[in-house]
């Protein structure tokens, strides 16, 4: 505050020295001018390449637009009504939610478990951390390829191993159940490292003094976990759940490369459908409507979770 006053008085005295016009403007608004020069071009660029398309997708849902060279026709809420009438859209949406939720939950639990172990004073902690995080930086296109080869029905290694153990080989590509399992396993493999490191950061941010205090009060291991660890990791838990949620309902790459939505669209998720509608089925309006619905679900879910975790404090 005092700094502000000082600045003001400085500008007053400089006014007496009478710099007028542009010079005075420049002196008075020095920060604002610098900010405009720095942020202006970046934000303009952002608006053109991201702001406009994202806002446009909200209008897209109100049009019937068959193929990019067609002229869009305004149809009001027709696409949104169709979304909820057409069983395939609703089931895609539900699949996104339960499959994404399941993957997020599994990865979160596995990540928390790994983080609790990595937080112990073990030898070679750094090596474990590296091993667990490596999948995160690999390319989805490349690593799904390995899984596809391993699961090859004819000469895939996993089916050979199953046969060697005396069981029936599994037809991974033609079963819905195994399709979902494939997707879940791959997503776990790819996502558990991030979760583990985030939880680890949360665990390490808990003040060790609190543990000592709890020990003096006679708390056991379980009591310490409940009363010190859980409240301590709460801020990062909010972050993990919100970002996990946002990315969970958006699972797409795994589905596209592993099962391609098959068999018969039974592993299709909503994002897969949006992209299929937009780029291959020439149904741009439906893609827009589905996007709006997806965005609102993510928005409502993350806002309500944020509120909930805040209110409890």
């Amino acid at each position: 505050m005092s700094e502000y006053k000082l600045k003001k008085s400085a500008s007053l005295t400089s006014k007496l020295a009478a710099p007028v016009g542009w010079k005075r403007f420049r002196r008075r608004h020095a920060d604002a001018i610098t900010a405009t020069i720095i942020l202006g071009p970046m934000i303009l660029w952002w608006v053109v390449m991201y702001g406009i398309p994202f806002s446009f997708s909200f209008f897209l849902g109100f049009f019937e637009w068959i193929g990019i060279n067609d002229h869009p026709k305004f149809v009001g809420l027709h696409n949104f009504v169709l979304f909820f009438q057409d069983e395939s859209y609703v089931s895609d949406l539900l699949r996104s939610i339960w499959m994404g939720g399941l993957i997020m939950l599994l990865a979160m639990i596995a990540g928390l478990g790994a983080a609790l172990l990595m937080n112990l004073p073990l030898f070679g902690k750094g090596i474990y951390r590296t091993m667990w995080y490596v999948p995160v930086v690999t390319s989805t296109v490349a690593t799904t390829q390995v899984l596809i080869i391993l699961l090859n029905p004819i000469n895939g290694a996993i089916n050979q191993a199953i046969e060697a153990l005396g069981f029936e080989p599994i037809l991974w590509q033609t079963s819905v159940f195994w399709g979902v399992v494939q997707i879940c396993i791959y997503s776990m493999w790819k996502g558990v490292g991030t979760q583990a490191l985030l939880w680890l950061a949360g665990l390490q941010s808990v003040d060790p003094v609190l543990y000592e205090a709890a020990e003096i009060d006679g708390a056991g291991r379980v009591a310490k976990f409940i009363h010190v660890t859980i409240p301590g990791v709460k801020p990062i838990a909010t972050f993990i759940v919100i970002t996990g949620l946002i990315s969970a309902v958006q699972i797409y790459e795994q589905v596209a490369f592993l099962t391609n939505g098959g068999p018969y669209g039974q592993t299709e998720v909503l994002v897969y459908r949006i992209i299929a509608d937009g780029f291959f089925n020439f149904n741009l309006g439906m893609a827009g409507a589905s996007s709006v619905i997806l965005a609102s679900i993510v928005f409502i879910a993350s806002i309500s979770y944020y509120r909930l975790s805040r209110d409890k404090d």
Binding site: A32, T36, I52, P53, L60, I242, Q250, V271, A295
Partner: peptide, 28 residues
């Protein structure tokens, strides 16, 4: 400068929007 905090929060809030939503409109 005026609107520093608001602008920053607005930019951060856009991070919550699923990225896939922009895929088709960007193409258009």
């Amino acid at each position: 400068f005026k609107g520093n905090g608001v602008l920053f929060m607005a930019l951060l809030a856009t991070q919550m929007i699923p990225g896939v939503i922009g895929l088709l409109p960007t193409y258009l």
